[in-house]
Amino acid sequence: MSLAKFKAYLGLEKQYSSHTITAYGRDVETFAEHCGKEHGIQSLSEVSYPMVRHWIVGLAESGMSNRAINRKMASLKAYYRFLQKAGLLERNPLAKHRSLKVEAKAEVPFSEKEMERVLRAIVYPEGFEGSRDRFMINLMYTTGVRRAELINLTLGHVGPDDLSIKVLGKRNKERILPFLAETRTLFKEYMEVRNAKGIGLGNHHVFVTNKGNKFYETLVYRIVNKYFQGVSTKVKKSPHILRHTFATHLLRGGADLNSVKELLGHGSLASTQVYASNDIATLKKVHAMAHPRNVNK
């Protein structure tokens, strides 16, 4: 059953990123190889759930975490749903599968002091890369933009006069994100240096390499990690933690959950509530200070 058609379906109909499509395809191929080797199965339409369970047990015994196994199972679920939708399969062997239990990951946002240090205290390199990196980190913190959205941001979608950017999020949903006056200043400084050096003149993307090519995911990660390495002792220093920090700091500042949801581009409030639950200590302080029955105020 054509894996190429499955990948095309993920890209055209589900609007998944190229990274996700590659990962899903690889998981299906690995599972198909396992079934052929262990069970003599030539077509994935012949698979039964005990065969799937056998694969899961093997992955667990190899030391793979439940979270990683669940990601692989998501790939298989998507594949079998595709086969059913295409009329190529009547019985889905994963119909009754339940995800393995995983512990909730505690993602610790950067503190306001750490953000102040990375934005104001550290010295960025002179020239193109320094101005680009400073602008990028500032934009990510002040808008909560996703890494993929940042990479695909084009010059035509930055409104320096009305202090906003237009991003294309998941499922091709557009949203307008406001940014600060200081972010506009950094954008103009970056573009002045970029144009003066003639970097990326034919590239309409906002963020380019020093050779003028479009940004890529690992470069964004390396830049964020590089600058936070000197100001934070947190284990995880990634673009997602910067987005997490944006949401957490807004909620601490009194922003309502629905507004943060819209800014983040979340499809449901449940996704945004994670940031609220992670900031329970702040909520307790607010409650203690504000509640009229608290005699210790």
Rank of each mutant, 00 (worst) to 15 (best):
Lys85Gly: 11
Arg222Leu: 05
Ala247Tyr: 01
Arg184Glu: 15
Lys211His: 12
Leu177Phe: 06
Glu38Asp: 08
Ala255Asp: 08
Arg147Tyr: 03
Trp55Tyr: 15
Gly159Lys: 04
Thr272Pro: 01
Ala255Thr: 08
Leu119Gln: 09
Arg53Ile: 13
Val47Asn: 04
Asp27Trp: 03
Gln229Lys: 14
Pro292Arg: 02
Pro50Ile: 11
Ala276Cys: 09
Lys72Tyr: 06
Ser164Asn: 13
Ser62Met: 07
Met140Cys: 08
Asn70Arg: 03
Met51Pro: 04
Tyr141Arg: 02
Arg53Pro: 08
Asn203Val: 08
Lys5Asp: 15
Val260Met: 07
Ala181Trp: 02
Asn278Thr: 06
Leu153Glu: 07
Ala60Phe: 10
Gly212Arg: 13
Pro50Gly: 08
Ala290Asp: 01
Glu189Cys: 09
Met73Lys: 06
Arg71Lys: 14
Glu103Met: 08
Lys101His: 10
Tyr24Lys: 04
Asn70Tyr: 07
Thr142Asp: 15
Tyr221Gln: 02
Val224Arg: 01
Asp161Thr: 13
Phe82Lys: 01
Thr142Asn: 15
Thr22Met: 04
Val145Lys: 00
Glu90Arg: 09
Glu114Tyr: 01
Met73Arg: 07
Gly127Lys: 13
Thr248Ile: 06
Ala32Glu: 03
Tyr16Arg: 14
Gly265Cys: 11
Gly87Tyr: 06
Gly265Leu: 09
Ile122Asn: 00
Phe246Met: 01
Ile122Thr: 02
Glu61Gly: 10
His244Tyr: 06
Arg222Gly: 09
Leu264Trp: 07
Asn92Val: 03
Asn195Gly: 11
Ala106Leu: 14
Lys7Tyr: 08
Ser18Phe: 05
Ala32Pro: 02
Arg26Glu: 11
Lys77Pro: 05
Phe6Thr: 02
Asp162Lys: 11
Leu257Trp: 12
Lys113Thr: 15
Phe128Met: 09
